[in-house]
Amino acid sequence: MGKIISIVSGKGGTGKTTTTANLAVALGKLGKSVVAVDGDLTMANLSLVMGLDDASVTIHDVLIGTAEIKDAIYAIPDFENVHVIPAAIDWEHVMKADPRGLPSVIKPLKEQFDYVLIDCPAGLQVDAMSAMLSGEEVLLVTNPEISCMTDTMKVGIVLKRAGLAMLGFVLNRYGRSSNDIPPDAAEEVMEVPLLAVIPEDPAVREATLEGIPVVAYKPTSDGAKAFMALAQEIERISGFKARVMY
């Protein structure tokens, strides 16, 4: 039975989509079958980061009722063991799809894959909550700024009360400012385990522009190494062990 992990934050722009894409490819490198789901029904950036163009069937079509989930799963040939379920980018699909249907669509995927990673919208609105509550475990993503951390911590508290298991958090884009909150202080603020520090790395931005996660684009870069370390930690704690540890 696979694990379903909601990748969440309290603010937009923290790097949830980049984290989702790189974690998916990194887990694939570890031999795990993975599907990354674009749960952000209004922004839909995951397919761009994963290099998936012109998907004819999306999760919007599944929610609308014009397609089955199996038709929206795309294997990514360049990344071993990795699949993507994209979202549509046109407003007509956005208006028709009801995000409240996401849990019933996403949860059965754990029968097919070792890991189901959900790239969730930021915040606590209905669309974000529907995506986040489709998961069973939570990976928080924050930047090293106090406002970002406190907002993300609030989302984590809500999801923990809803019964999801807190895996921990990723401190993303660390080192871009001399005012960054250091990892040990960040862990005190977040009150959940720090799983990885992803450094500010030009290679990550370059990879995003190319539509190739950095773990594949430049695997020897600092950013890629940090994402691989995150995948190894997720593999270690995800599942039953995470629930009893945290």
Rank of each mutant, 00 (worst) to 15 (best):
P99F: 10
K70F: 09
A185C: 08
M149C: 07
N81P: 10
A26Q: 02
K16W: 12
S238Y: 07
G123F: 10
V155W: 02
A72S: 14
S9V: 06
K218R: 15
T150M: 06
M129W: 13
P77M: 05
G211H: 12
A122G: 11
M149S: 03
Q112N: 10
K107P: 08
K29H: 13
M228G: 05
E187N: 07
F113G: 01
G211L: 08
V197M: 05
T142E: 04
R161T: 11
I59L: 13
C120I: 12
Y174G: 00
R236C: 07
Y115N: 00
P199M: 09
I59A: 07
N81S: 06
D61E: 08
I69Y: 05
E210M: 14
T66D: 01
D40G: 08
L139A: 09
E68Q: 11
K225I: 14
D222Y: 12
V94H: 08
A242Y: 02
G65P: 06
G163C: 14
A231L: 02
P219N: 07
E233R: 15
R236I: 11
A196Q: 11
S178V: 13
D184V: 15
A122M: 04
A21F: 08
E206W: 12
K96T: 12
S33T: 15
A165W: 01
S6I: 12
S9E: 03
